[in-house]
Simulated scan of single mutants.
Amino acid sequence: MIQVYPAESRYAMDLGWLRSRPSFSFGAYYDPDNTSFGVMRVCNDDVVAAGRGFGPHPHSDMEIVTIVLSGAIKHEDNLGNVAVTSAGQIQRMTAGSGMIHAEYNASETEELELLQLWFMPSERGLAPSYETSSYDPKRMNNTLLPVVSRQGSDRAAAIHQDMTIYLSRLEKDRQIIFQQEEGRRVFLFVIEGRLTVDGTPLEPRDTARIEALSKMTIAADEEAFFMLIDLP
């Protein structure tokens, strides 16, 4: 089953310094029928104004992944971590037993565009931790490049959950066949371009939640940049 959520159907929030389109209930937006997808709890499509951001605030028992699409984000936390993450890099935070952090647009002149993703961890009360990883954008051309996975690697952040986040840039008229074990889920986000998944069309910024489909064909109707998450 492929359930498409068109970009224009998502809740839109504009605070002046922050423009956000959450895929799930978040903050002022609450829909009791749209709170999660498997272990996935948040997918926020955010644009943050130059020099602005989120002041110190707490988290616990959540795996938080930030994918920077353009610009750079500055992170600070009570563990002493201070880091700047740019496009081509991934930020992963394990809130675990409790963590306080702040995030800001690192630029005073340019907007920051990002996807922020939250997932329930495989167990509660983990030791809080933070990491930034880098990937080579050329390695995602016409393939699925893992940028976050349970085991991690020198090019992928490690996450405390049985899941993998892939990025791909697919040329027009090219296709990828994705297979997974029975009973798992796929969350797909079209960042740029247009795709079809087993004949189902997806426009820019559309998302799809896919269940009971262990094999699927992803084809580019035009050059497309997308994220695919393999979930339990």
Rank of each mutant, 00 (worst) to 15 (best):
K74L: 06
N44L: 06
A224V: 05
G183M: 11
V48T: 06
F178P: 00
R205F: 10
E211K: 11
G88P: 00
E113I: 05
G51S: 04
W17K: 04
E181L: 15
T85V: 03
S25I: 06
Q89E: 12
R209E: 09
D206C: 15
E203A: 10
A224P: 04
T132F: 04
R174W: 06
P137T: 01
P204Q: 15
P137N: 01
M140K: 12
D14Q: 01
L167S: 08
Q116C: 15
N34G: 02
H75Y: 03
S107E: 06
G88W: 02
A157R: 01
G96C: 10
A208N: 11
G53I: 12
R139V: 00
Y5E: 08
S168Y: 14
G152T: 06
T164W: 01
I90V: 12
L202P: 02
V48W: 02
G51Y: 07
I210R: 09
S86L: 00
F26S: 06
V65L: 13
T94P: 00
E123W: 13
Y130K: 01
D61T: 03
D162S: 11
S168A: 15
I100E: 04
I176G: 09
H160Y: 08
F26V: 02
N142A: 10
R185C: 08
Y29G: 02
G38S: 06
T109M: 15
D206A: 15
M40W: 04
G55M: 10
